[in-house]
Each structure stands twice: as C-alpha cells, then as structure tokens.
Design a binder for these strands. Structure first.
Length: 118
RNA sequence: GGAGUCGGCCGAGCAGUCGCUAUCGCGUUUACUCGAAUUAUCCAUUAGUGGACAUUCGGGGGCGCGGUGGAGGAAAGUCCGGGCUCCACAGGGCAGAGUGCCAGGUAACGCCUGGGAGGCGCGAGCCUACGGAAAGUGCCGCAGAAAAUAUACCGCCUAAGCAGUUCGCUGCCGGUAAGGGUGAAAUGGUGCGGUAAGAGCGCACCGCGCGGCUGGCAACAGGCGUGGCAGGGUAAACCCCACUCGGAGCAAGACCAAAUAGGAACCUAUUGGCGCGGCCCGCGUUGGGUUCGGGUAGGUCGCUCGAGGUGCAUGGCGACAUGUAUCCCAGAUGAAUGACUGUUCUCGACAGAACCCGGCUUACAGGCCGGCUCCUUUU
C-alpha cells in the first residue's frame, strides 16, 4: 500500500500555477456547492490547490473545515490520479452542508475525476 | 430550601491508526550545496601560484526513524491606548479631533481602583457624557392665556376714586396670581401672620445665592452669619474653559538575489559582422569580455522571551508595586493545529492566531466554586 502523505510537493504553491490551471482547465467536475478544475502536469503525481473565498464562505471556522475535508479526501484518493494539477473551488452555501455529506459527495467527485483523466 | 446580587474558573474526556507543521536527537544522502585540510595525479603558468579530480572533516539543505510542542475566552468587532518600524520635526500659535466630579494605579488609555454627588432598589447592590446656562448665539412640537421681553383664559376682590341705585347692590376705573385648567417644565415649597382679595408683604423651617469657619490632599460635607431671592430647560446644539494628541502601518521595515531588458566604468576588436556596391576605396551601423550600481520573480530576517506566566514574601482599603524562586507556553505563509474507529458522559454553544501587548464592546450549550442580601421552613 502506497503512503498517503500530503506534504508541500502535493500542493499548488504559486500564483502562476494557479493561473495556468484556470487558463487551461481540460477537465472539470461540478457539484451544486463546489467546482473542480484540472489540467495535466509533468511531475508524475497529482497536486491540489484550494480556493475558498471569504465572499462565499463567511466564517473562517467554516473555511478551515472545508479545507480540511478537501485535503483529507484528496489524500486518500491521490494515488488514483495521473499527473494532474487540481483546483477545488467552494461555492456559496457549502458551509451549510453537513460535514459527513460533504465528505461523501466529494469522494464521489474524486472518483469521477480519476475516471475522466485516465 | 427558594429568590436575588457580586466576583472567580471551566469550555467534553480516554485509547488506537493515518496525516500536517515546528523543534530536538540519531541515521542517511557527495550526480544537492558551501567551506577547510591533505597528498597523489593531470592541466595552465608571468615560476609567486591558479584550476580540475580524489580522500577526509565540518556547516547548511533533502530524505527516513524516534521524542516533544501545536488556537481562544472571546483568537471576533477593529472602538480606544501603547511597544516596534519607517517618514517628518528649531520654537510658538491657529485649525481639527478627543477627554470632562476628585484622588490614585499604569508604558498609556476613553481602562481599572478608591472616594464624592445625584438617581433606583426592602436589601446585598446597581446606574450616571457628573465642568460652565451670570460671555454670546440658537432651539423648545402638541396642549396652553402665556415657553422667556413675561403674561392673565376661567377665577378671586371691590378697601380707595367715579357713575348709577329699588340702598340689597350694579357698572367703570382698578387690584391680585391664592385656587382651577394645559404641559416634561409656569418665577421656590410648607405653615402661620397679614389683607378688600392677595402677594417673601412679614416671620419660622426647608431650598437657593453670597461670605467666613471646621473636617478632608481634593471632589465635597457640616455648621455659622447674611441676602428676601438673584431666577425656566437644552452644552451626546453652536460655544466657553481645562487637559491630551505629528503621519503611516509588519503588504511597517531590513537583507540576499536568477532570467530578461536597459545603464555606467574598464579592457579588447576595428585585418571582424551587417547595409550601400560587380569589386576596391569610402560612408553608415554594430560587437566580445570583466566589473559595478539600481532592481523584478523568488527567498531570508522581522517572528515571538514578553510592560510574560505561576508560587511565596513585603507595602497598600484596593487597582497595583517591589523583591525572590521557578517555568518556556503556536509561529503558519496557497497559509499547519486535523481525520477515522472504538468507548464514556451532563451529548458538546459562540467561534480559528497572522507583529506583539493593555483595555472596551459584542457572541456563547452547559457546568463548577466562593462572598453577601431578602423570604421561608426545621431544630
């Protein structure tokens, strides 16, 4: 079983990389409360970036909770992806979804994305 | 036991597995990087050395394993006050903003403590923007006669003066503000005297103003004398008085610094390249190297040991101060502090550090401890 670590090499770190994914998003998975964009990279593994605006999710406690769920589910699914850069965007109302429901729908979304990018 | 009031504290616990981040230790990585030493070999040499490679050691970085730490009482709102940093600054004034009973605490405050005054509560206690209305200006809806120069709606009176008279009184001229009514507020209140009726007109007490005295650092309180009484409210209306205040903020600010473009200095080429041209001459244009400064991406620092926490002692009614012992308690940066499983209970609220402190304000499931007050019951 491969390790499910999630250190800085698995994250998007700079403005330029974010902009590249926004410009050349070749895959997308949408839900009522969130949107996932992705494009291929050369690193051989998947990398995740999170965009959770204060405008859409007002309280910082809720923003932190969404980030943690997103990172945790990504961590468990990361080995099903090819080398892609992924951006997760939160939409308005995501803070109203219960944590367990959000976690399961997001897991399904990761499976969907993995099938699309194979 | 019930009701209330004040102050302090807590903000689910335990176990296992998988993660993130910081730090410490050990190991590992020389095709990650820097520095030092060594001698063998090779290259260059202006004969001083310089460079390459190898070995050893040390520092940083990466990776692995293990240990340890890892959100709050409000981390929040950003409403005040300071530290820190950069900029500005001879001194003084104006403008602007803020504060506003007194004393103390503090780095400072609009905060805190103690005291005073006024108001609320049976009480413990609580509340108060609480300087000046006799510097000037403005405003005061509705109601009411009248809202500030005072005035007279309903009333009360008929002593004096005039007129009439049926000799009972009536009218005029007047007096008055006690009573009624309006209002948040109407020229001080109660009582007695006084009077035609009344009125600080006179007196007593209270209130108010002024001047000593006593107590208190002071705010203020008490008491004495004195004046018949000045004079509505509003200063979170302008204003006056006293005191305080330079500006911007960690995206502050400091340092390192790739690529690309441009700049400066020096060296070098001018027998070079490109254009005009058939070619030469000629003319125009241009290069290469080294160094330097500015500076972008990016990175490092600032960054957490501090007006610090806890215990004890001393001083103080207290806020707090001083001394001493002891502890190290997040430091991220696309931004960590979490997830899953099991289990227990009272079934878990408001809510997430971003340079750091001191306050205030606002949000909050539930729980614990202590002081005091009132009511009730029992012995």
């Amino acid at each position: 079983m491969p390790r499910e670590a999630f250190d800085k090499s698995k994250r998007l770190l700079t403005q330029q990389v974010f902009q590249k994914v926004f410009d050349k998003a070749s895959y997308r998975v949408a839900d009522r409360h969130f949107l996932i964009l992705a494009c291929p990279n050369l690193s051989g593994h998947a990398r995740l970036g999170l965009v959770i605006g204060k405008k859409n999710i007002r309280l910082s406690v809720h923003r932190n909770r969404i980030k943690r769920v997103a990172r945790e589910t990504f961590r468990h699914h990361q080995h099903s992806f090819a080398g892609i850069d992924i951006i997760f965007l939160a939409r308005r109302g995501l803070d109203k979804v219960p944590k367990s429901a959000f976690s399961s729908t997001l897991s399904q979304a990761w499976v969907q994305l993995a099938l699309n990018t194979k």
